[in-house]
């Protein structure tokens, strides 16, 4: 009894601390995205936060492809409401037909291709002011702390999440991001003896989470939702047994 009451007390205090730190608590229903529940545990209040910037660091060209795929998967969870999203970049290689693999409609995404960093930041801020978007994605390599703080203030008003993909940044500086992600490729899983390439699989590293501990996951995208990689293995094991017999 004493232990439990103490635990309640500590949880209450933790919530109070989060509130004092300016971390507004949303009710669980308001923000329950079943597709993203896999990552929810890594965040405070066990809730995938959307009111802020998610930053993705990609060093190699291959990492960029993995990050773009992962962002697409996140977008598909957010775009279920039917609102469009905006993709801002300076040198876009994204090929819209492939977005269908991530349960997205490519024609619901508006691409804005720009040349200068200044223009990207201006358009990003303007886009985040528009409340009817499900998300804004920007490919930008450098983002200073003050720039990110400015974006954060806009987001707090409009509640539109921003995903910022930083390709080969010169330095990974402090920003106001809610989470800093790094996505790496993992070999795709297929039953032994089956030819071909399987579902996209990644090792997802949460390098930094505001008010929580870093974490890492091994996940695959099965066409509709995320799955733990070991669960994929479990599904595949019966197949292996069948093959053996």
């Amino acid at each position: 009894m004493e232990k439990e009451s103490k635990r309640h007390l500590i949880e209450d205090l933790k919530k109070q601390i989060l509130g004092l730190q300016g971390y507004t608590t949303l009710s669980i229903q308001e923000n329950s995205l079943p597709k993203l529940s896999l990552f929810a545990n890594a965040f405070p209040n066990k809730n995938f936060p959307l009111e802020g910037i998610h930053e993705f660091i990609a060093i190699e060209t291959e990492d960029t492809a993995a990050s773009v795929g992962f962002i697409n998967a996140l977008l598909s969870a957010l775009m279920e409401t039917g609102s469009p999203s905006i993709w801002i970049s300076s040198s876009r290689n994204l090929f819209p037909p492939a977005m269908q693999r991530f349960a997205l409609k490519p024609d619901q995404i508006i691409f804005i291709d720009l040349n200068h960093q200044k223009e990207i930041l201006w358009v990003l801020e303007e886009a985040l002011k528009c409340e009817n978007l499900s998300a804004v994605v920007a490919e930008i390599s450098e983002l200073s702390f003050s720039q990110s703080r400015r974006l954060q203030l806009v987001i707090e008003k409009s509640k539109v999440p921003a995903f910022i993909l930083r390709n080969n940044p010169q330095q990974v500086n402090n920003t106001t991001c809610l989470a800093r992600w790094q996505i790496k490729h993992l070999p795709s899983l297929l039953p032994d003896g089956m030819p071909g390439v399987g579902h996209p699989s990644w090792s997802v590293n949460l390098l930094k989470v505001r008010n929580a501990q870093p974490a890492s996951f091994e996940v695959a995208w099965n066409g509709t939702t995320f799955q733990h990689l070991n669960q994929v293995q479990k599904v595949l094991q019966p197949l292996k047994k069948l093959q053996a017999s």
Partner: peptide, 27 residues
């Protein structure tokens, strides 16, 4: 909601006015 939303077209007008209408693409 969706693409017909007036606030979205207002946003795209502003962007087109600043950086030019050619930058905005939908496929």
């Amino acid at each position: 909601s969706g693409l017909q939303n007036p606030s979205l077209s207002a946003l795209l007008d502003r962007v087109a006015g600043k950086v030019g209408p050619k930058a905005i693409r939908r496929f």
